[in-house]
Write a protein that binds this DNA or RNA. Structure first.
Length: 211
DNA sequence: TAGGCCATCTGGTCCT
DNA sequence: AGGACCAGATGGCCTA
């Protein structure tokens, strides 16, 4: 293989099997072969075989690049998982891709809010007046700006920080839910958040679990 | 066993 | 022309 497989499942056997079995019966191969001009009878066999080999080689090259591209994408996804406060711990299953993206989004929102609160506190502390046009909210409940600490906390504490507790059951009637200025991940507030519940059972999103 | 997640292949489209 | 990107299809693995 031209690259190491980063996933838990080895890709090599699958790749070899598919590339050897599928290609020559595949639609692309058949189409391309059908489109070839027939050489003179004497050279027909060797020429056709050459074409097939070239096409096969080309296909293998394209497949390999695509595989590498997806591996790079997965590596980036792993990098994202590493900086998420939820994603480590022996008892926590690896986040799915969709869960990673949704949680990352919420995490960014959370950090942004923390930053805004921090700015507000600093502004208040130093008696600096707001600039015209500043939209920082004044009536939002206080959020402790402790993202560094957050990363070392147990999951339950993190949940508490972002306003989610096990036992909170969101309903469509009460949406949008107030999570201290954060985006609630329940199905009522976010269309795709239900996937979190299924893939991350240790997170307190069980109220959105699909039955 | 059904459904979710994933890796891979493939063909099309866009870009350089 | 060749490579990157994308989305659909397919099949394997895993879990509830």
């Amino acid at each position: 293989m031209d690259s190491d497989c980063q996933s838990s499942r080895s890709s090599s056997p699958e790749v070899e099997r598919r590339e050897s079995l599928n290609f020559k019966s595949g639609p692309m191969f058949q189409k391309l072969c059908a489109g070839q001009r027939m050489p003179t009878r004497g050279k027909m066999k060797s020429s056709r075989r050459e074409n097939q080999e070239n096409l096969h080689e080309l296909r293998m090259k394209v497949n390999s690049r695509e595989r590498q591209r997806m591996h790079d994408l997965n590596q980036a996804m792993d990098g994202l998982r590493e900086v998420m406060p939820y994603s480590y711990g022996p008892s926590v299953r690896k986040l799915s891709k969709i869960s990673t993206l949704l949680l990352a989004r919420n995490y960014i929102v959370m950090l942004s809010n923390s930053l805004e609160e921090m700015r507000k506190l600093l502004t208040d502390a130093h008696g600096v007046h707001r600039q015209p046009g500043c939209t920082s909210s004044l009536n939002r409940p206080h959020i402790s700006p402790l993202p560094q600490v957050l990363r070392t906390l147990p999951l339950s504490d993190v949940n508490g920080y972002i306003g989610l507790t096990p036992g909170v059951h969101c309903t469509p009637e009460t949406a949008p839910h107030n999570l201290s200025g954060l985006l609630c991940p329940c199905v009522s507030c976010q269309p795709f958040s239900h996937q979190l519940a299924r893939t991350v059972p240790t997170l307190p999103f069980t109220s959105t679990r699909k039955q």
